[in-house]
Amino acid sequence: MVLVVGGSHQGKYAFAKTLSGHVIKDFHLTVKTALEQGKDPWELVERMKAEQTDAVVTVAELGCGLIPVDAFDREYREIVGRISCELAKQAQAVYRVCCGIPTRIK
C-alpha cells in the first residue's frame, strides 16, 4: 500500500493517479460515513490492510486546525489521525502533498 496525505485541494488525487496501483480516494470520507452509520471504522482499516495491499490510498490531514466545536467532528478528526498513523505504519511508501508538490516522507 502507498499512502498519500495532505491538506484539502493540495493535489493528492492528481499525484496518486501517477503512481502504479488503483487509487482509493478520500479514505477520510469513508471513515466519516462509517462513523455516521455507527460502524467501527477500524474494521475498514483491517479489511484494507488485508485486501488492498496494492492500493494507493489518499487521506486528508484533518488535524492541523483548531479543535472543532462539534463533538462528532472532534471524534472524526481524532480517528482519521489515528487511522492515518496506522496506514502509514503499514504502507511501503508515504507521500505528503502540499501545493501540488509531493514529498516522500517514508
Binding site: E61, L62, C64, R77, I79, G81, R82, S84, C85
Partner: peptide, 8 residues
C-alpha cells in the same frame, strides 16, 4: 510538533 492525532 504535529497536528491533532499525528502521533507526536
Amino acid at each position: 510538533y504535529g497536528g491533532s492525532g499525528s502521533g507526536k
